[in-house]
C-alpha cells in the first residue's frame, strides 16, 4: 500500500500524472489513493520530495 507523508507532500500533483491506473486524486492539500492502486511504486520514485512510501 502507498502511504502519503503529509509532512513532506507539497500537493503538486506530479504523482497523479504518472499513475497508470489513475488512482491518485489531489484534493487541495490531500492526496487520496483509491483501492485500484496496484502499488507499482512509480509515484514513490518520481515524487519531488519523497513524500510517498510503501507501507
Amino acid at each position: 500500500m502507498i502511504q502519503v507523508n503529509i509532512e513532506k507532500c507539497g500537493h503538486c500533483g506530479a504523482c497523479v500524472s504518472v499513475c497508470p491506473t489513475n488512482s491518485i486524486t489531489l484534493i487541495e492539500s490531500c492526496l487520496e489513493i483509491a483501492d485500484t492502486c496496484t502499488t507499482c511504486e512509480t509515484c514513490v520514485t518520481i515524487c519531488p520530495v519523497g513524500a510517498l512510501v510503501v507501507s
Binding site: 503538486c12 500533483g13 506530479a14 500524472s17 504518472v18 489513475n22 518520481i46 519531488p48 520530495v49
Partner: peptide, 26 residues
C-alpha cells in the same frame, strides 16, 4: 487541469506520463 489532469482520462483519452517524459522539479 494541469499536469495532474484527470479529466482527459475520465473521458477516455490516455494522457498518463511515463517517467521518461516527466521532469520532477523542486
Amino acid at each position: 487541469d494541469g499536469v495532474e489532469s484527470q479529466l482527459a482520462r475520465w473521458a477516455g483519452i490516455n494522457t498518463t506520463l511515463k517517467p521518461i517524459d516527466l521532469e520532477s522539479c523542486a
